[in-house]
């Protein structure tokens, strides 16, 4: 079916999310708590758009609104921009030192905050990606705790988690750099727990915790010497691709 986004018609599948249709067609809608691998949480509300359906006109989050009819979508109307600006302002007060938020502030013409209470030192905007990532891996070391304005992300009892493997996936997906990872002298510290790092079998650089290595082994069945650091993995993949091209060229 066809839907209209900002005046242009686009092809969409029944049940497809507006955001996916937009992204496919290079229409930019800002998102924060949305990643290809961890989609549709609907927490940050940055991806709001206006949907016009018959006489109804409403604001929805594009990451989780399924296309079910021939709707018209406005991704950047004045109304939306005004609300998004407010959301950015609210987020910026919670994560004032994050580069990501500074960029957004600039984009929405926001200057230094004067009226809101600004919380420094945390920079967490509770987008939920870290918890989702940890759960997707099947580790369940962290979760949201409390509710309302005291909600935060934490390990149980704010103690070093027994099950954490120190993989750092939570920090990797965090858009505001709020999860602190310290790495030095072959050690990694995250969520108050310190892990010994093992070297890459190829280049010798420390890159993985023993717990994570065991986890990857169990998941993939790879021998430890085949588990490489990201750089070496990419190089290896590059070499393989090179071989493939060579093969083609030979023929």
């Amino acid at each position: 079916m066809k839907i209209t986004i900002d005046g242009q018609k686009y092809e969409a599948q029944y049940g497809e999310y507006i955001l996916d249709v937009a992204r496919r067609n290079n229409i930019f809608i800002p998102t924060l708590c949305h990643l290809e691998a961890l989609p549709g949480q609907g927490n940050c509300r940055l991806c709001i758009v206006e949907v016009l359906e018959g006489k109804r006109r409403r604001v929805v989050v594009s990451c989780s609104y399924p296309v079910k009819g021939e709707i018209e979508v406005l991704t950047n109307s004045e109304r939306i921009r005004k609300m998004r600006k407010n959301i950015v302002r609210l987020l910026a007060a919670a994560a004032p030192d994050s580069d990501f938020m500074k960029e957004l502030q600039k984009e929405y013409g926001l200057q230094g905050e004067e009226r809101f209470q600004v919380t420094r030192g945390e920079d967490c905007i509770l987008c939920g990606l870290c918890v989702r990532a940890c759960e997707e891996l099947g580790i369940y070391a962290i979760s949201t705790v409390n509710r309302g304005i005291t909600k935060k992300v934490s390990t149980p009892f704010t103690e070093p988690s027994e099950v954490c493997i120190g993989c750092g996936a939570c920090a990797y997906v965090c858009p505001t750099g709020s999860i602190k990872v310290k790495e030095e002298g072959g050690k990694r510290e995250i969520w108050g727990k310190t892990f010994a790092l093992l070297p890459c079998p190829s280049c010798g650089k420390y890159f993985i915790t023993r717990e994570e290595l065991e986890y990857v082994q169990a998941k993939t069945g790879l021998a430890p010497e085949k588990i490489l650091c990201e750089k070496c993995r990419q190089e290896q993949a590059g070499r393989k691709m090179g071989d493939v091209f060579k093969d083609i060229a030979m023929k």
Partner: peptide
């Protein structure tokens, strides 16, 4: 508030 979405949590707080 459950504290999940930004407008509600941060908006109410401010």
């Amino acid at each position: 508030s459950c504290g999940k979405c930004v407008p509600c949590r941060e908006g109410i707080k401010q």
